[in-house]
Design a protein around this nucleic acid. Structure first.
Lengths: 344, 344
DNA sequence: ATTGGCACTCCAGGAGCAAGAGTGCCAGGC
DNA sequence: GCCTGGCACTCTTGCTCCTGGAGTGCCAAT
């Protein structure tokens, strides 16, 4: 009837298997964990766990390995979050503070995350549509062409070259650009990019007819930039960790790499995570729970960062992963990244 | 004495081995290639080739596989460049033309290159220091902070936030920013970024004392952006190709992935290529020729693109690579990328 | 210089075997 | 009712031995 001990056995199995990547048997389990009972008892517990679908034996006379359901239970109920040491936290903070711009923040974050967890790290750029506009700049770059530079509150900067349809070189052109710049910033600054489209459409009405064409082209470029398809960017690092020895994971590395390059998959994943929880929650998707073919056999640990969950970040690795470490690290890193972005 | 036929045998060995990834023997070679001689003759030729270090046998009674030197000879003298079909060229061009900005051009290029060659594709962003300044924009973003936006002739846009040391909000601030913008563009536009630093230093002399501090901060940011360390960015795609079955290459995938993430390595590689040849030459570095540990066992095919060789791109794969295809594709893609960049 | 022939080498894969690790189950003890 | 020691059973792993096949190297003949 001792339900507790059975779970204790499960925890021990998970921990040992994560360490050694070999099926763990009743005897070798007792060597490392002090359960106060005999091997036979452990065997009985294991049999029950197997019946419940929490562990499985590769073949009759091998030890047990956790199933996806076993990991799930472990993550939900058996693992206490392992807080990072003060030194680690300080190192993260210091490293991130050295970044000179958003690209640099993202680059440093993924590299750090991957080296701390020994997994593949992924990070989404802060979503444009969920960010608020800080400034819109218009830069005439010769002839009828003008570069539209969009700066949002997360520090992300996006630019597009648009064809204004008429020359902008003379004094009149300068004046026109100046007027438009003022209009755009009055109407857009401080608003979410998703809201900016409609607002500007409306504002277009007031624009004098001879400026309509230019203005429309610019608004079109801005709304286009906020489209899901174009706005989302993903960066990753630590793919070499996939090839690390230990475990049979090296076999399935191909599909995983493919899935990782299929950025849409990652974005969906992080999007789903975002939709289902409070802000600083870390979401874990284990093995077959994963909706994407190539990522069966892999686990994903993600969370959101930035103002209004503007972006997601996380790690991808084998189901045989150190979840407490991964979850703690992902959470801490997201925390500090948010901090950095707030400061700018 | 028939030196020609021996080379013909070498070519046949390379071609077959690339196809099958298995050591090729005298007999099976004759099945696929019509050399007009007997197996025994081929065996003699192979023995000579082995003595010359161009092929090697994994063990006594196996077929031969090319050595790095064998591939080198093949690339230098035996392979005619395999021109892409008209349809392929058209497809490349069409696909690249859909790009909306430089990021998009780079992203599309690497994905296309990797799927055409079935190798890992890498591409360096156009170097800032070798590009010429098209425009410098100053955007005050509240308080003492101003965002410096640098636009160069390759379409690359870089931005930095600098602390001006004094508030810029009032009318006086606006005037100051306007003056500085004019000065910067007069002095910098059209020049290479590498030359811009000194020029601006000199121009600083004329700046009225009360503007000195702001101006210096901006110039510092610009020169900092042109530093090798910060200016170089690399993008890659198709890493899943490394895990493709066939050959023993899957074993060494780990080190290769590490080397690929070590962007500095790739930049060096492309830099060296750039320094040693005429513009549209494709450089090939085979196996142990490679100066970087992790890339022994891999080959790199690169070339330059853009005005004054502003950037490099290429593919990385096993030494057992289809060199004619890789070289032709890399060259064609670089050609079209240059074209696109010229148009902007 | 080329060729057919032949002996030789070596790997790949299957069979057989012993050791080791682990399990399942049972009967006895608390 | 739960735990435990014991025991028979199962399966993998690593070893050796063996055989078939592919390929070579060399030689004598053309």
């Amino acid at each position: 009837m001792s339900d507790d001990r059975r779970l204790e056995v499960l925890r021990a199995i998970v921990q040992d298997y994560v360490r050694t990547s070999e099926p763990v048997g009743s005897k070798s389990l007792l060597e490392r964990h002090n359960l106060g009972v005999s091997a036979a008892t452990v065997r009985n517990d294991m049999a029950v766990l197997e019946e419940e679908g929490l562990v499985a034996a590769p073949h009759t006379s091998a030890g047990r390995i956790p199933t996806d359901a076993g990991y799930r239970l472990f993550v939900d109920r058996l693992s206490q979050v392992k807080p990072l040491s003060r030194a680690e936290r300080a190192a993260i903070q210091r490293f991130l503070h050295g970044a000179v711009d958003l690209d640099d923040v993202v680059g440093r974050t993924v590299r750090m995350l991957s080296s701390l967890t020994h997994q593949v790290a992924v990070m989404q750029y802060p979503s444009l549509s969920r960010s608020t506009v800080r400034h819109i700049e218009l830069v005439p770059i010769g002839g009828p062409r003008v570069m539209v530079v969009l700066i949002v509150n997360t520090g992300r900067v996006e630019q597009r070259v648009v064809d204004a349809g008429r020359g902008l070189d003379g004094l009149a052109g300068e004046q026109l650009v100046h007027d438009l710049r003022g209009l755009l910033n009055r109407e857009a600054a401080g608003y979410r990019l998703a809201e900016v489209g409609p607002r500007l459409e409306q504002a277009l009405a007031e624009v004098p007819p001879e400026e309509q064409e230019v203005a429309r082209a610019i608004v079109a470029a801005l709304t286009e930039a906020a489209q899901e398809q174009t706005e989302e960017r993903v960066v990753m690092a630590g793919t070499a960790n996939l090839a690390r020895v230990g475990g049979d994971f090296t076999a399935s590395i191909g599909p995983v790499l493919e899935a990782l390059e299929e950025h849409v998959v990652l974005l969906r994943l992080m999007g789903e995570m975002a939709s289902l929880g409070n802000d600083d929650a870390v979401a874990v998707s284990i093995g077959a729970e994963n909706p994407y073919e190539g990522l069966r056999g892999a686990s994903v640990v993600t969370t959101n960062y930035g103002p209004s969950a503007a972006g997601g970040l996380g790690v991808v690795g084998p189901t045989r992963m150190d979840y407490p470490l991964a979850m703690a690290t992902v959470r801490a890193v997201a925390h500090y990244v948010s901090q950095i972005l707030d400061e700018n």
